Computed example of a mutant assay.
Amino acid sequence: MKRKKLQKTNAIRLLEKENIDYKIHEYKWNEISEAKKIANDVGISQEKIYKTLVSVGDKTGVLVTCIPSSSELDLKALAKVSGNKKVEMLPMKNLEKTTGYIRGGCSPIGMKKLFPTYISSTAESMESVVVSAGRRGLQIEVNPDELLAVTNANYAIITI
């Protein structure tokens, strides 16, 4: 049986344009896909899987964060590190219009605009992290320093 060709996402195209090495992980997505299931489906450690969250600061506007899938975003810590007094999660209904991505397929790479981005400092010591490739059921494994570079991000302590 012939395998269908991978349809490239904005995230994949941007990594290729910047000559950044990456590895693709595909899995069958459903509404309750979670990191543990994804890790089992693709054969990687759950600790490598990072989720992308989008929030809004009262001074800076849209903020993007990548944190371990098992962690919770600390909005107060994010506000402090991003120069805001208050940060709230972006309403889900605004996600696609703001980023170009939908829930379950939101990648920190290749959004409509380059928003201020913060990656959990836990990624600093890792060889690679896995983030959404910009489509449900598709993940990208990449070196965290290269993820930092391509998203113009900063490492920060932003989890509870």
Rank of each mutant, 00 (worst) to 15 (best):
T52P: 03
T52M: 08
L53T: 01
L53Y: 00
V56C: 01
G57Q: 06
G57C: 05
D58P: 00
D58W: 02
K59T: 06
K59E: 09
K59V: 06
G61S: 12
V62A: 13
V62R: 05
L63P: 00
L63W: 05
L63I: 10
T65E: 00
C66Q: 04
I67P: 01
I67F: 02
P68Q: 10
S69R: 07
S69D: 06
S70R: 14
L73F: 11
L73W: 03
D74C: 04
L75I: 14
K76I: 02
L78E: 13
A79D: 11
V81T: 14
V81Q: 13
V81P: 08
G83I: 09
G83A: 06
K85M: 11
K86P: 00
K86I: 02
L90Y: 07
P91A: 01
P91K: 14
P91I: 01
P91G: 03
M92V: 15
M92W: 08
N94H: 11
N94Q: 12
L95F: 08
L95C: 00
E96H: 10
E96F: 10
T99V: 13
G100M: 08
Y101N: 03
I102V: 15
I102M: 06
R103H: 04
R103D: 03
G104A: 11
G105E: 01
C106D: 08
C106P: 05
S107M: 09
S107E: 10
P108L: 06
P108G: 08
I109G: 12
I109N: 00
I109F: 14
G110P: 03
K112N: 15
K112F: 12
K112A: 04
K112T: 15
K113D: 08
L114C: 13
L114I: 10
L114R: 15
F115D: 09
F115W: 09
P116R: 06
P116F: 07
Y118H: 12
Y118T: 02
S121W: 02
S121T: 04
T122F: 11
A123P: 04
E127Y: 03
S128N: 12
S128M: 08
S128L: 01
S128D: 10
V129A: 14
V129P: 06
V130T: 13
V131S: 09
V131T: 03
V131K: 02
S132T: 04
G134E: 14
G134S: 13
